[in-house]
Design a protein around this nucleic acid. Structure first.
Length: 677
DNA sequence: AGACACAGGTTTTTT
DNA sequence: ACCTGTGTCT
């Protein structure tokens, strides 16, 4: 296999196939290239593709690797002796676990039709638990409790470090109630996916050995982002054969707040004493001015593996630093600069990105962009699957698949209104908790409904009938003749339930109502994808559909091809690169964020800044404001202390007269003329 | 059940 | 400024 296009370190990383290996891959040093080449190299060396496992955090990363591996490996290599396709497993932690649980979850006392709860459903569970117990005058934030519960479940240490000790104690107390509640609903959350596999491995050595046998060569991407249970998962698979390769960068660890433990990377040799280390420092992305700034900033962090990025691209343009009066002026100036780049320097919108720390910073930027009629793409924001009508629809689906799903049931029990008021549902929920079962189990047990009025009992029984008959129709092989069996089944119950009529009734504005209906119809049309074989039964189709939208909320965006400026938070820009980067709001209080001071996470804030800087390929401009609108009022702001860490000679302060070369000046007028014609 | 008013709280996000 | 959740009134 051809490895000559790789640099010596990359080559060494690719060739080290056996035994533990740590690849310290600085930003932009070609780590995806190394991982995919390594997979291809292993296959070329005769390792069976089916024995290779590569784990990522996001579906996007997994998809990209799959495609690149496919391009690198000859087709005949991806077939076993009998002509059967045999591919390496390249997927996220969570989809790996779902694959394993699909086979074994009944061993853990769950039913096969389990559903996966997303963040909103988890939050609902916590809310319900909190409302049941008396907490005196204190009413804790369910979100904070949930995040502590999650952290608690994913750490091995006996103490949970949190500023709020009472809240941490409460979370610790609620962990078991929380777990029982999900279990009674035959539901699992994202943490469960990992934790249940760990439990499976502990309780069933046969399953563990099967997995060890199968995944004989393991790679983990973005290893600095793993939490303790994810570490345990891969460690338990790898500790017998030791073929364990992790790729990561401690300097890009920016998810400590959600449980990532960079110690997994820094202390890898504790668990794998023979680990070999390869450092990738040659950067293929940025100019040296940008890299020097990044190096200068990050070297102020203490606990890190020393790395120094360099490139052969030359110094390039200096870094621009601007000061503005307030965030509105900042937004306007950035938009002007973007359009100046476009008209004079022929730099497309899509080659430019504005990075910011907090989502609320996007507001003035969007306003200015719209005013100047600049197309932009705001990354993140509300997901399609968070829209109310989609949540309702999906809740119905989950409930019909798994009637024990309390979360789905409580959400749609009275949507549209069918005589199941809040009080009724609360009483039913209380009964279910007494019995340790699901709400649906109470509803279908007529002897348990003595306290309700005849009319309410009738409503309850009608609802039970709706769920059971729809569930029965799901399992009856009728719709198989249809080209879209799942859609056909959904259409039938949607008619019966009259959800569309309810949406049109509730929404005053006719256009939004039709939009909501259309969202559901769009989803219906995607429910029977081509890659699901025509002979698959409807329940399996539903299961796969729900699993898919739970694990991969990305929807194919059509307008991605268009020319548009990217607006993105610093967190979500990790892994991306842009020719021209603007970092807005480089201020004390934003980068580093004000809360990081009390939380003592200044290092992570510095890494965040480092990640932002290293996104830039050709030019980098940063700005800060003297005032910024926050929660309705103007607050005075100061430049970020991190700016002082960048050597002065790399920076040109804007707002000082910008020299315009004669050539550019002429160009400007030529373009102006052209645009007027 | 549904409309409205008021309080409280606003970092970062994927699966 | 703005959104979300909760409480009160009809």
């Amino acid at each position: 296999m051809e490895l000559s296009s790789l640099n010596p370190e990359q080559r060494q990383a690719v060739r080290t196939v056996d035994g533990p290996l740590l690849i310290l891959a600085g930003a932009g040093t070609g780590k995806t290239r190394v991982i995919t080449s390594r997979v291809a190299y292993m296959i070329a060396r005769g390792i069976r593709p089916g024995n290779i496992l590569a784990v990522t955090f996001t579906n996007k990363a997994a998809r990209e690797m799959q495609e690149r591996v496919k391009r690198l490996v000859p087709k005949r290599r991806l077939t076993d002796g009998n002509g059967q396709a045999e591919k390496p497993t390249i997927c996220t932690f969570h989809s790996l676990c779902v694959r394993i649980l699909r086979r074994h979850i009944t061993k853990l006392g769950y039913k096969k039709n389990f559903v996966i709860y997303d963040a909103a459903e988890q939050l609902g569970v916590v809310r319900r638990i909190l409302s049941q117990i008396s907490l005196g005058s204190r009413k804790p934030d369910p979100g904070a409790v949930l995040s502590l519960i999650s952290r608690w479940r994913n750490t091995n240490s006996d103490e949970l470090v949190a500023e709020d000790e009472d809240l941490a104690a409460l979370a610790k107390r609620l962990v078991s109630t929380y777990q029982q509640t999900l279990k009674a609903s035959n539901a699992v959350d994202f943490d469960d996916l990992i934790l249940l596999v760990l439990r499976l491995f502990a309780e069933c050595s046969k399953a563990l050995n099967e997995c060890r046998e199968r995944y004989h060569y393991i790679m983990v991407d973005e290893y600095q982002d793993t939490n303790h249970s994810q570490f345990q998962l891969v460690h338990s698979l790898a500790k017998t054969h030791q073929n364990f390769c992790v790729v990561g960068d401690d300097d890009q660890s920016i998810y400590g707040w959600r449980g990532a433990e960079v110690a997994n990377l820094l202390d890898l040799d504790k668990h794998f004493p023979d680990v070999q280390v390869v450092k990738l420092e040659q950067n293929y992305r940025s100019t040296n001015s940008i890299l020097e700034a990044a190096n200068a900033v990050i070297k102020n962090n203490v606990q890190r593996r020393a790395k120094k990025l360099w490139s052969d691209k030359g110094a390039g343009e200096p870094i621009m630093l601007w000061e503005f009066r307030d965030d509105e002026e900042e937004a306007q100036a950035l938009v002007e600069e973007i359009n100046y780049n476009r008209s004079i320097k022929k730099i497309k919108w899509r080659e430019q990105a504005i990075l910011f720390r907090t989502n609320q910073q996007s507001r003035p930027l969007e306003t200015a962009l719209r005013k100047a009629e600049v197309r932009y793409n705001l990354v993140g924001g509300q997901s399609f699957f968070d829209r109310r009508e989609i949540r309702d629809f999906v809740s119905y689906l989950k409930l019909f698949l798994n009637p024990d799903d309390d979360s789905g049931l409580l959400r749609i029990a009275n949507v549209p209104a069918r005589g199941l008021s809040n009080t009724t549902m609360e009483k039913l929920l209380g009964l279910s908790q007494e019995r340790g079962g699901s709400v649906f189990a109470v509803m279908r047990d007529e002897s348990a409904l003595g306290q309700f009025q005849r009319r309410t009992v009738d409503s309850i029984l009608d609802f039970v009938e709706l769920v059971e008959s729809t569930n029965e129709r799901l399992n009856r092989p009728i719709a198989l003749h249809s080209a879209n069996p799942l859609k056909a089944w959904c259409t039938a119950w949607l008619d019966e339930v009259e959800l569309f009529r309810e949406i049109r009734r509730m929404e005053k504005d006719e256009e939004t109502a039709e939009n909501r209906v259309r969202n559901i119809v769009d989803l219906l049309d995607s429910m029977d994808p081509d890659f699901v074989p025509a002979d698959r039964p409807v329940p399996e189709r539903l299961h796969r559909f729900l699993e898919h939208i739970s694990l991969d909320r990305e929807r194919d965006e059509e307008d991605e091809a268009g020319d548009a400026v990217t607006l993105i938070t610093v967190h979500s820009c990790k892994g991306l690169e842009f020719p021209h980067v603007f970092i807005a709001g480089v201020e004390d209080g934003l980068i580093p964020h004000a809360r990081s001071k009390v939380e003592g996470t200044l290092d992570e804030e510095r890494r965040l800044f480092y990640v932002a800087i290293t996104r830039a390929q050709k030019t980098l401009a940063m700005s800060h404001c003297k005032n910024r609108r926050k929660f309705g009022e103007q607050i005075p702001c100061h430049p970020s202390p991190f700016l002082k860490e960048i050597p002065e000679e790399l920076i040109v302060h804007g707002n000082e007269a910008e020299p315009v070369s004669e050539e550019e000046g002429l160009d400007f007028f030529a373009n102006l003329k052209a645009s007027l014609e």
